[in-house]
Design a protein around this nucleic acid. Structure first.
Lengths: 343, 343
DNA sequence: CTGTTAGCGCATTCAT
DNA sequence: ATGAATGCGCTAACAG
C-alpha cells in the first residue's frame, strides 16, 4: 500500500504560519479567529488534505461520538430493520456506530461488549440481551461506566434504559380480533428460549381459560423460533397437528411461523383464510411478500431502533435512564377471516 | 449518569505496585515479565475491571483495528447477509467495523466515507458503490490514503480491490438450465439502475438470439428492483403481460421478482412449475421460505462479505490490491420443470 | 485574538 | 526483568 501519511495539525500550523491552537480553533469554530488568519489556515488545510484525527480528539476530550450496537445475529430480518432505525437516528445526531454480532451466545455477547468498551464507545445498545445467562451483575456494573439501552428483553436493571413492545397487550389485541371473527379453537404456535414467547403464551392461556376454551394440546412449541429453519419446522409440525386438532385459527408468535403455517395449509389443501385463519406477529417484510399477505401485529422495528438510539444519545448527554413501551398495532391483511363454523 | 470513570493503566500500575510499562507488557504479552509480578498485575486488572483504551493505543501505534463498511441500505436482505459475512471475518481478525448506510444516494455515500476516514479506519468496504454518479476521481484519490474494497459493481479503479460474482456466467448457466428443460419462450424480468441487470440482459439477448428466439417484447423492466415494492410491482406487471405473452418460463433478475412472479401466477391460476417455470437469482433466505421453494442462482452473499473483509485486511497488512470473481451456482428447487409444450 | 503548554492513555526506547 | 521518560495528535486552560 501507498503510505502517503496523513497531515497533522502541526503540519497545518506550520504551513499556515500559526500555532496549533489557532488551527484547532478554526477547525472547531468554537473561538473567535481573525478572518484573514482563518483564511490562511483553511487554505493550508485544503492544500494538505488535512482531516482531524478523531481518535486523538476524543482521547483528550474523553468523549466519543461512537456508540456500540450488539445484536444476536443478522440473518433475522427483524434485527436488520431495528438496526436500520438505529442507523437513521444515529446519523442525524452525528454519531457513528460499531456493530457486533453475538451469535445468540452469552459469552460472545460479553466479549462484544468488552470490545466496545475498549473502543471507548459512549454508549451501547443491546438488542435482545442475554441477561439470563450473563450474570445480571455484569450489566449492573457496566452501566456505572457506560450508558446502556436494551431493546426487547424484559429486564429491570437499575440505570439501564429500555425500549420494547407491550407484547402482552399486543397478544391480547390479536386474540380478541380472532375471537371477534368467531374463532374458538385457536392453535397457539411458539418457539423456545425467549420470554417474548412466554409472555404471549401467558396471555393466550388466560384469554382462552377465561372463555372456557383452553386446552393444553393447543399449545405447540416448534423449537428455535428465529432461524431459517423455523419456517420448515413449523410446516412439519403443523402437517401432523392440524388434521388431528382441527383448529379454525392459528396464532403464531412470529411471522416466520405464520409462513410455515401457511405452507402447511397449502400442503394439506386447507384454504386460507376460508377454511382456516392465520395470524402472525412482528410484521417483518416477509409478511407482505407472500400470497396471501399475512395478518399480523406490527412491532414497528424501525421505530424500536430509532427510539433506542435517541434514548441512548439523550442519556449520553446527561439524561436519566428510562423505559419506553411501544404499543403493537394490528395490521389486517388477507390470512384472517370470519370463522365458518358459526355460519 | 453515574460517572465512575474507567480505570487506566496508571491505576492498575498503582494498585499492583509496578510501573505502567510493566502493566503494558503483561497486557500485550510481548515482553518477558516475571511470573509473580504478572500475577499481581492480572489481579489488579480484574479487580479494577481494567480494559485498555483502544483509542489511546492506536493513537500512538498509528494503527487502527477498525474498518468501515458502506452499504446502500439494510431493508434488503441481500445486504444483511453480506454484512453478516463481513462481521464474521472481521471478528476473527480482531477488527471491528463501523456501519454506514448511504440510502442509495451518491452524496450520502461520499459523506459516509468521509466520516469513516475522519474516524481513522484502516480500510473501507463499499457495497455496490455508486461510482457512476460520484466522480471516479474521488475513489482514485481516496485509495491513495486508505485501502478500499468494492463488492458488486463492475469498476476497475487503480488500486481498488474488488469482490463480485460472475453474473454473466451465472445467467448463462440459468438460461442453459431452462433451455435444457425444453423452454423456448422465456420471459426476462429486470429492474432499473444497476449494471447487474444490464449484464444479465446482455447475456439473455445473446443467448436467445443465438437460438433465433429473441423478441424485444420478452424483456420486462419493472422499475426499482430492490425495494419492498419490487414484489408487488412485478406481480402487477406480470398479471398484464403473462396472458398476452404466454411464456413457458420466467427468468427473474432477483428473488424478489421471482416471488412477485409466483404471486402473479397464483392470481392467474397458472400452476408452478407445471404450467410455467420460474427462475430467481441471488438465493436470499426468502427463496426457500415460500411455497413452492424457488429455483435460483446462489450468489453466496455471506462468502462475498467474508472474502471482501479478508481481502481488505490482507491489503491493510501490506498486500496488493486484487480482484476476486466468485462463481454463481444453480440451486435447483421446486419452481422449475420440464416444458409441457414439447410433450 | 493568538501562542504556549499540559495532559488524554498508552507503547516503547533507553537505562538500570 | 523492570522503571523513567518520550511522544502519538489533539483540545483546553492560561497567559499574553
Amino acid at each position: 500500500m501507498e503510505e502517503k501519511k496523513q497531515a497533522t495539525i502541526v503540519d497545518v500550523a506550520k504551513a499556515a504560519g500559526v500555532s496549533v491552537a489557532t488551527v484547532s480553533r478554526v477547525v472547531n469554530g468554537n473561538y473567535p479567529v481573525k478572518v484573514e488568519t482563518k483564511e490562511k489556515v483553511k487554505a493550508a488545510i485544503s492544500s494538505l488534505n488535512y482531516v482531524p484525527n478523531v481518535q486523538a480528539r476524543e482521547l483528550n476530550t474523553r468523549r466519543s461520538s461512537t456508540i456500540g450496537v450488539v445484536v444476536p445475529g443478522l440473518h433475522n430480518m427483524f434485527f436488520a430493520e431495528v438496526i436500520d432505525g438505529i442507523e437513521d437516528a444515529v446519523r442525524q445526531d452525528g454519531f457513528s456506530f460499531l456493530l457486533n454480532c453475538a451469535q445468540n451466545d452469552p459469552v460472545q455477547e460479553m466479549q462484544a461488549i468488552n470490545t466496545l468498551v475498549a473502543r471507548n464507545v459512549s454508549g451501547i445498545i443491546v438488542i435482545s440481551p442475554n441477561t439470563k445467562n450473563i450474570s445480571e451483575n455484569f450489566y449492573e456494573e457496566l452501566v456505572q461506566r457506560v450508558p446502556l439501552v436494551f431493546i426487547n428483553g424484559y429486564h429491570r436493571i437499575r440505570g439501564v434504559s429500555y425500549v420494547g413492545n407491550d407484547e402482552q397487550m399486543g397478544s391480547q389485541t390479536a386474540l380478541e380480533y380472532l375471537a371477534g371473527l368467531g374463532h374458538k379453537r385457536i392453535l397457539f404456535v411458539r418457539g423456545c428460549n425467549s420470554d417474548s414467547y412466554d409472555i404471549k403464551e401467558d396471555t393466550y392461556r388466560e384469554f382462552m381459560t377465561k372463555r372456557e376454551n383452553f386446552s393444553e394440546d393447543y399449545i405447540l412449541n416448534i423449537g428455535e423460533g428465529n432461524g431459517v429453519e423455523t419456517v420448515d419446522a413449523t410446516t412439519e409440525a403443523l402437517k401432523l397437528k392440524l388434521p388431528q386438532l382441527q383448529p379454525t385459527a392459528i396464532f403464531c408468535c412470529n411471522d416466520l411461523m405464520a409462513v410455515g403455517a401457511m405452507n402447511a395449509c397449502k400442503r394439506l389443501g386447507l384454504a386460507v383464510p376460508d377454511e382456516i385463519s392465520i395470524m402472525g406477529y412482528d410484521n417483518i417484510a416477509l409478511s407482505r411478500l407472500v400470497e396471501p399477505k399475512i395478518t399480523t401485529m406490527d412491532q414497528n422495528m424501525f421505530q424500536l431502533g430509532k427510539s433506542a438510539a435517541q434514548l441512548l444519545i439523550e442519556t449520553i448527554r446527561g439524561g436519566k435512564s428510562k423505559r419506553i413501551m411501544l404499543d403493537n398495532v394490528l395490521v389486517s391483511r388477507d390470512t384472517t377471516g370470519v370463522c365458518k363454523d358459526n355460519l
